[in-house]
């Protein structure tokens, strides 16, 4: 049985344009699924639709169901705010592209991380403080106590994204949605964050829905991918199949572009060896 099942999802804007049409895919418990698309392809909207967080005026059709063992099956499309609020954080959790906007600039990091821990696990006082430190340590933040006392602007972009991940994991969600989580980061920091996500998702046997525009990044961390263009799925399958034998022209173009850039790097290595 699938943890997340998206069936015939459509999203329509206030003025009646179809932003996403007839999108279907499934994410099984403990697996990693990648959504690839360029700007305007509807990939981030898909994430919002799954969270029930579509901007006002947009309407979703079709079906998005979450099925967590022990918590029952829930239909997201058309669900009420109270039900959705219960799911957010516990069943599904998101990490966004820009951690600075996801964090409250006027609140110390420690308080922000404590918030979901307090709500979900009912921790108070010393136990809560220990849990915050543990959460920050889990995302490999050195000096967790210093970070906990800092405000978001006082730490680096990579550290902020680690904090955002710590908050997303606080309630041990069954599904983690990562929407372009490394796009705003330096390449070296990106590699670290990807490695961190990879480790955490495995350690907690969470499912991962990874959304990105960079084929190389997404294919490195997921095992199944779906390529979106203009709100429609053009290709999906196992990562190696899609990357090595893309069928749709657009998928071929994307893979070709990535290969072309890769080749420039490969030539360097060869030049050195010869």
């Amino acid at each position: 049985m699938s943890l997340l099942e998206v069936a015939g999802l459509g999203v329509r804007s206030a003025d009646g344009r179809d932003l996403i049409s007839d999108l279907s895919f499934t994410v099984d418990a403990g697996t990693r699924f990648g959504l690839i698309g360029e700007s305007g392809s509807g990939k981030s909207l898909t994430a919002l639709a799954i969270m029930g967080l579509l901007p006002p005026g947009m309407t979703a059709s079709g079906s998005v169901t979450l099925d967590v063992p022990g918590r029952g099956r829930t239909e997201i499309v058309g669900a009420g705010e109270r039900l959705l609020n219960r799911l957010r954080g516990r069943t599904t959790s998101v990490v966004f592209q820009e951690p600075l906007t996801a964090l409250d600039p006027l609140m110390r990091i420690g308080h922000q991380v404590a918030e979901p821990l307090r709500r979900a696990q009912g921790l108070r006082g010393r136990a809560l403080k220990t849990a915050v430190t543990a959460a920050l340590e889990e995302v490999r933040l050195a000096e967790p106590d210093r970070i906990a006392r800092a405000y978001p602007h006082e730490i680096s972009g990579g550290q902020r994204q680690r904090v955002a991940i710590a908050m997303a994991l606080a309630c041990r969600p069954a599904l983690l949605i990562a929407d372009e989580p490394t796009t705003a980061l330096d390449v070296t920091v990106q590699a670290e964050i990807l490695a961190l996500l990879d480790g955490l998702v495995s350690a907690h046997s969470m499912a991962l829905l990874f959304i990105g525009h960079d084929l190389a990044v997404v294919s490195g961390i997921t095992d199944h991918v779906l390529i979106l263009k203009d709100g429609k799925a053009v290709e999906s399958g196992a990562v190696l199949d899609v990357v090595n034998a893309p069928r749709h022209p657009y998928a071929r173009e994307l893979v070709g572009s990535a290969r072309e850039l890769d080749a420039a790097l490969d030539r360097l290595g060869e030049g050195e060896r010869s």
Partner: peptide, 17 residues
């Protein structure tokens, strides 16, 4: 050391069979 880390960090497509 930094250059080495930088080169290692570049995301690459899975190798072609």
């Amino acid at each position: 050391a930094y250059t080495r880390r930088l080169v290692r960090s570049v995301p690459r497509l899975p190798a072609r069979p």
